[in-house]
Simulated assay, not measured.
Amino acid sequence: MSTETEAPVVVSVDLGARSYDIVIGPAILGSAGVEIARRIPGTRAAIVTDANVAAAHLRTLRDALSAAGIGHEVVTIAPGEKSKSFATLQDTVDAILAARLERGDTVIALGGGVVGDLAGFAAAIVRRGMNFVQAPTSLLAQVDSSVGGKTGINTGHGKNLVGVFHQPRLVLADTAALDTLPPREFRAGYAEMAKYGLIDRPEFFAWLENNWKDIFAGGAARVEAIARSCRAKADVVARDEHEVGDRALLNLGHTFGHALEAATCYDSARLVHGEGVAIGMALAHRFSARLNLASPDDAERVEAHLREVGLPTRLSDVPGGLPDAEALLAYIAQDKKVARGALTFILTRGIGQAFIAKDVPISQVLSFLEENLAP
């Protein structure tokens, strides 16, 4: 378990005048009012959260805001990926407007990636852009979705196809909040953490292989792993804020993963985002080996580690079955990593050697899916 005596770690995202801090450590929610008031003086706030997170953490945040003199309203949504919808976005926007918040006020996202993506999108479009603060309570959100300014919702056509870039003013990553996560959700977040090592930090992946048990147990390695992950993402975002270049590398595993999420109708009982990413990363490494880009040994090493921590790595690990290869390919083709009809994947030449592969032949993807769907 995390201890409240650890000093917070601050990671900066360098975007010039729009730079912001990621404050990482235990009991950060308890100082949220002070941190926000220092950066956005005189603000009022709307806290967007879901029912599950509210039960565990809302009182701590509300008390912190009240102690700092920050007036606030609460908008509570249903938990789960299905809340990333036009209907829930409309309800959230209406609630923020009903609270009579102004452009200089703040939307605070208290929750995981779903809450952060939805609340950030609402903050971006209400009054043409309000201040936004991320208070991520899941591991996945702390190491990935809360950093970088991507916001959005899903549609029947696919995941995150409607949204905007809207950077937060501050990210408050309370590592003690992770102690309340179900083990499955923590494992799902770990997949995004492993991703940074697999992209371009092989030494970090090796470190994770040796320290994952301490990370899961809440030891000192947890804060270090989150901070290293945030630095990795911050570096990429600073170079390529709007994903016109190498920020696309952060999508390692996501093209396959998003297709699986769509194919399971975003049913979290069957598959959550981090599990889709884990399967997607294993597939990306196996596909790279099949194309003779990387050694099969690397694919086996990646799969072995993900399995060791309890993550799924194969299509057969998705409960309830999947549609055929043609249908999965259709979901892949709808994914936003497609440009002018050409399939784009993040592939690898080895652990820590990911690259953007454009114009990947559809026939090769189809045959690879068929092989991996076979019993």
Rank of each mutant, 00 (worst) to 15 (best):
V13K: 01
P41L: 05
F204E: 00
A51N: 09
N372G: 04
D317Q: 10
S367I: 15
R59M: 03
V34I: 08
A17V: 09
S268Q: 14
R270N: 01
A46Y: 02
G25T: 07
I215W: 02
G104R: 15
K213M: 05
W207L: 08
V237D: 09
T313L: 03
I125F: 14
F86S: 06
A330S: 08
N251L: 03
D94E: 15
A56R: 14
S2I: 14
H242G: 09
G276P: 07
M281S: 03
K358H: 13
A173V: 00
T3C: 04
I356N: 01
G274P: 01
I346S: 11
G152N: 08
E209L: 13
L291V: 01
D297S: 14
L250H: 02
L97E: 15
G158M: 11
G111L: 08
V277E: 07
G148E: 04
A109G: 07
D179H: 04
I153C: 12
G219P: 04
A67G: 06
A188K: 03
V360K: 15
S2W: 07
G25L: 12
I96E: 07
T137H: 05
A354S: 07
E185Y: 10
E371T: 11
R270A: 02
G163F: 03
G350M: 04
A238V: 02
L369D: 09
I362M: 11
V338A: 09
G152R: 13
R127I: 03
L315R: 03
I36H: 05
F205Y: 09
M130T: 10
R349Q: 07
G30Y: 04
L118N: 14
A263N: 06
A325D: 09
T255W: 12
G152W: 04
V107R: 12
R307P: 07
R301L: 05
S66A: 13
I226F: 04
D359R: 12
D14N: 10
A122F: 03
A99E: 15
D267G: 05
A95D: 14
G104C: 08
R38V: 14
L110W: 00
K358D: 07
S19T: 12
A339I: 13
S229L: 08
D21I: 08
Y20C: 09
V34H: 02
T348S: 15
N292P: 00
C230E: 00
G218Y: 06
L65Q: 11
A330R: 13
T313E: 06
A98R: 15
H254S: 01
A46S: 10
Q142F: 10
L140S: 06
Y196V: 06
A27I: 08
R187Q: 05
Y20S: 11
E241I: 02
V114K: 01
Y20R: 04
K337N: 09
G111K: 07
T175N: 00
N154E: 01
F204N: 01
V10A: 12
E243S: 02
T180K: 09
A78Q: 10
H285C: 11
I125W: 08
